[in-house]
Nucleic acid binder design. Structure first.
Lengths: 205, 205, 205, 205
DNA sequence: AATGAATGAGAGTTCATTCAT
DNA sequence: GATGAATGAACTCTCATTCAT
């Protein structure tokens, strides 16, 4: 800990905190626009209005900013997802409406920092630390899904809730990704509607 | 054509063909083991037992080998998938068995060149040409799925076959990826079994 | 502008200015001694006592240093020519003395950076940007020649001053080049004296 | 000699001679079109319809073809100049006409292989062997000029014939080069006419 | 604390020439 | 004699990181 403080500053003063935030913001923007590998530290520093030297007094290396950016991103995403989720009444008898809202929530959440998503996926696959960070995040998502399922347990026809949680979470994610990244000939609405049908059929009745 | 030949060699002699293949094999192995960006052309050439110069007489640049490796990979994968598929009787009344076999087919197919998958995903997200190549491949997968659905059309309860094809294809892919890449606390068998249940419930009564 | 600064450094600190100058000086020396194509960026950097990285933070590429070296060279040359010229009294009735002084001026001017001349000629013929830069310089020389001719207009027997300016400028240049580069059996003095005779005879009675 | 024959073949058979000529022709074309350094041996071989291997059994290295090309060029040029010159009557009392014809001869001669001229100048300045070859050629030109001057000796007003020969030869060459290479605002006719005037005034009365 | 100049290893790529077939 | 595959040294350029001021 004290060794680390030797290297990078843990901001205590207001100005310091603002500078660090400025760097994270600038990095987020540049990573989203041009990608992690296509952005260099000089550019991040310049965009944040600081010198390269300063950059390295706030972050040990380039990866460190990415991780900070990622944490910010995760927090924002989680907050948004939670905000949407809180509106959902999981005892709503109209399961179709319920799941549609759920899928919409995730879709809308992903729309923040749309450009960052791609970079995140690349980094997830390239960097072990990022993999761990995100796996924890995904795991949290699956657990949350599990909790939701458990809340409405008695209405469900499925028995292996844990497996179902993963299945539901990943299916939705996959379709959300298809909608966000992949080209496809059919409309978002049709895709979403089929997804919801499948999930309702799987979970309830 | 003749201008292109000035740059890269089109193998004419036996020796030449073997060299090109050796380079592709070596590249495949190194990309799978260490990743595309962590592998340099010198290493590929050395692993193939040729000089850097030779490398560049067969491929314009590093991307070009990746694309050749990818084509090989796609061909192999497609052949394997098709081999598995041909064994499936789509009129088998036991839909559970049918879909289990289907999922197993994809899982087994993906086991070839397991390490290459990750790199491919990274490249898919990083390189526009690779994106296009793979999008075409995915589209082919969706279309094949659609054709299978259409073959057993009268047994299906769904109506939007096109959307369903995407949904089925992507759900299976997502779970296959989870199994291949992500850590998870529950067994592959439970996950697969739930997936099959969901799909059977969705597609057939 | 700001995008350019991202690539090459515009010297701000004293140290920076000195480094850039050191690189230009080193490049000039090496280009003169060994030629442009026989000199590589590593050597220039080493000779300037800096790293290759530094080299590339001041110059986009090798051509860029050459152009800077050339600008320095042109400035020096022009200053020298002008210094010599200013001593000439164009109304001196002894036209022989006048033109001898003129030729001597150009000869002496060319003696600076004697080795660089050859490289410059090569680059002039090889690189379009250098061609343009030097054509502008030559044009300036011809125009200056024209102005001198016009100053003593009423003493001249020629009528097409423009063509005469080119002719005079190029003849002198050619002989200066012969003296500088080509082997020849006769003395510089004889050559110079004949040249002056020819020009006096051509321009004045 | 015998050592050289070991390396490159001295063609004795018809086919061999033709092949060698084909290589020289192809090289001449490519050097003229793209320049010496922008042309590689593979391209020369291909353009001549032979393999790279064959190329190296006719020429020790790339420079060797250039030298052969240059010899061809010099021979052709000399033949053309001589053909033009032979038409000139050096006792023609109209000296203006005489010199105009002379200048035209050189201009026309230079028009052959126009593209090759530039490359030749570059090589002249870059390669010592080429320098020597061409210096010999230039020297021959000056000597020929001297001989012409001596032929009409009694009509000349100049006394230092040797210096005059150089001066005349170089002045004409310089203006021919200006016309061929450099941009200039005035017409070729005016330039030529002034040049002739200057030379007539210098050489005769 | 802050600046921005300096570093240097390492990447991709070219091509004259050699050599096995 | 001919082919064209193979060689490998050499070159240019980038950028995360350090360090003098």
């Amino acid at each position: 800990m004290s060794e680390m403080e030797d290297k990078t500053r843990t901001p205590r003063q207001d100005r310091s905190i603002k500078t660090k935030e400025a760097i994270v913001q600038a990095a987020m923007r540049l990573f989203s626009e041009k990608g992690y590998h296509q952005t260099n530290t000089k550019q991040i520093a310049a965009a944040a209005g600081v010198s390269t030297g300063s950059f390295y007094s706030y972050f040990i290396d380039k990866r460190a900013v990415f991780i900070d950016v990622l944490k910010d991103y995760n927090d924002t995403l989680q907050a948004r997802v939670e905000a949407y989720m809180s509106e959902i009444n999981f005892h709503n008898p109209d399961k179709h409406a319920l799941l549609t809202h759920l899928v919409d929530s995730l879709l809308l959440s992903h729309e923040v920092y749309i450009g960052f998503n791609k970079e995140l996926s690349i980094m997830y696959l390239s960097d072990d630390d990022i993999t761990q960070l995100m796996d924890a995040q995904y795991e949290a998502g699956r657990i949350r899904t599990l909790q939701y399922l458990q809340m409405g347990k008695d209405e469900l026809k499925i028995t292996d809730l844990e497996a179902a949680a993963i299945l539901v979470f990943e299916s939705i994610n996959a379709i959300v990704d298809v909608i966000a990244f992949s080209p496809h000939r059919i409309s978002i609405e049709r895709l979403k509607s089929e997804l919801v049908s499948m999930l309702v059929g799987y979970l309830y009745i």
